[in-house]
């Protein structure tokens, strides 16, 4: 048997794995649920992009993903706000924010995928969360290398968001537009 222990103290079979599968956070572990396959992005990037962004809530793409609480209660996963790219590669595009945590990055598996900006981390650059209990929005840093700025201030810990706040990630600037707030709430 090729069971060995890696430097972090995990046991794995060296005959089936070249390196410790658990040191990568279980990403390549045996039988790991993989994210949805990345779509072939050809030259018609803009089209594919808008199609993916405008994916309807509750579409087959959601299968196997953690389904948000609001979706369970309402049957749909409603939009609670938007981000609008006002500066950068995707200028003029909008992104939907839904209930609970929205992970932002360049990868297709992210809740909010900003494809055009190479300087944004692939996964978890920033997290925007909507809390249906207090009807408020927060922004928190992701676990990637890139820094997030909120109105030119570095986001080191979760901060509250208000309408027209400017979020800067990579070379893109995104303006935050809430739908839910004092004047509206999904019931």
């Amino acid at each position: 048997m090729g069971i060995i222990q890696c430097s972090k103290g995990h046991f794995y079979d060296s005959e089936t794995n070249a390196s410790c599968p658990y040191c990568k956070g279980g990403e390549s572990g045996v039988g790991v649920t993989k994210p949805l396959p990345v779509k072939e992005v050809g030259k018609t990037q803009a089209l594919v992009q808008s199609e993916a962004v405008v994916s309807i809530a509750g579409s087959p793409e959601d299968k196997g993903k953690t389904v948000a609480l609001m979706k369970r209660a309402m049957g749909i996963d409603p939009v609670v706000g938007w981000l609008v790219c006002t500066h950068g590669a995707d200028k003029g595009r909008d992104y939907r924010i839904r209930g609970q945590r929205n992970f932002i990055g360049r990868s297709e598996t992210m809740d909010i995928c900003i494809r055009g900006d190479e300087t944004i981390s692939r996964e978890n650059h920033t997290i925007i969360s909507y809390n249906p209990k207090n009807n408020g929005f927060k922004i928190a840093p992701g676990d990637s290398k890139g820094i997030t700025y909120l109105n030119d201030e570095e986001v080191l810990m979760p901060m509250s968001l208000s309408a027209y706040d400017v979020i800067e990630i990579g070379t893109s600037k995104l303006t935050f537009i809430p739908l839910c707030g004092e004047r509206f709430k999904w019931e």
């Binding site: 995990h10 046991f11 956070g25 649920t33 953690t66």
Partner: peptide
């Protein structure tokens, strides 16, 4: 003797961590 298992489940990231001391 020892064994371990880990899986990401249906979450986006793996937030569990584990380790044994030197057992060899």
């Amino acid at each position: 003797s020892f064994g371990n298992l880990q899986h990401i489940g249906k979450r986006e990231t793996q937030q569990d961590a584990f380790g044994f001391s030197n057992t060899t």
